[in-house]
């Protein structure tokens, strides 16, 4: 949505939630912790409405004068219970590798303390170990290499994770190949130690 459209949405957002209190069907887009705001596309009865501003709200189905802005207090009143139950956001820890290698950089092992501390903060913690490569070579080789790195890390950490209450069935591995280079490190066919990494996600 461009600036003009967002102004239009704001202009349309004259109705307040209290005016629509009779409708139980409601959607509200929330600002994220970092201030970024996403979007939800509401489709009902052949019409399509995009909600993409913080606290943009829509009584479902959309129609006459239903577009509104919710305030934080109303959201808390209606949705506080559900919002309080949202699980903690997953947290990532990054480990680096030497070129073509699956051996963990010794210094990176220190990251492990962070992983253990994060696991301790959670109930029923799961660990996802995701390998990444730099952009040298083809997709297939890099997928295999990235998965091999992830499996190396898993094999090494499995006993540690188990001893901290994360059983093997709560540990999974993935290989992303070269699909997800770091921002500013996207150039293809480039050796890049920063892209050769395994990300451990605790969720």
């Amino acid at each position: 949505m461009n600036r003009r459209e967002s102004l239009l949405v704001m202009a349309l957002a004259s109705a307040t939630l209290t005016a629509c209190a009779s409708s139980r069907n409601l959607v509200v887009v929330l600002p994220e912790a970092d201030g970024h705001v996403g979007a939800v596309v509401v489709q009902a009865g052949g019409s399509k409405t995009v909600l993409n501003a913080a606290y943009a709200a829509d009584h479902l189905p959309p129609g006459h004068q239903r577009l509104a802005t919710a305030d934080a207090r109303t959201v808390e009143r209606i949705f506080g219970e559900a919002l309080a139950s949202l699980p903690r956001a997953p947290v990532d820890f990054t480990f680096h590798f030497a070129s073509n290698s699956t051996e963990l950089d010794a210094a990176a092992m220190k990251e492990l303390d962070g992983v253990i501390a994060e696991i301790a903060q959670r109930k029923a913690a799961e660990v996802v170990i995701t390998g990444h490569t730099d952009t040298v070579g083809g997709d297939e080789d890099n997928e295999a290499l990235s998965r091999a790195r992830a499996e190396t890390v898993r094999d090494r950490l499995a006993p540690v994770l188990t001893s901290h209450g994360v059983p093997p069935e709560s540990v999974s591995v993935a290989g992303r190949g070269k699909r997800e280079p770091l921002p500013g490190h996207e150039r293809d066919n480039t050796e890049d130690p920063l892209n050769r990494r395994v990300v451990i996600t605790v969720r």
């Binding site: 139980r24 069907n25 409601l26 959607v27 509200v28 887009v29 929330l30 600002p31 994220e32 970024h36 996403g38 979007a39 939800v40 596309v41 509401v42 489709q43 009902a44 909600l51 993409n52 479902l60 189905p61 959309p62 959201v75 209606i78 949705f79 559900a82 919002l83």
Partner: peptide, 18 residues
């Protein structure tokens, strides 16, 4: 929901339905 389909473009939102 009974009355609409929400397409999610990310990331945080809340829904109430009857």
């Amino acid at each position: 929901t009974r009355v609409a389909v929400l397409g999610v473009r990310g990331t945080e939102f809340v829904v109430r339905a009857d």
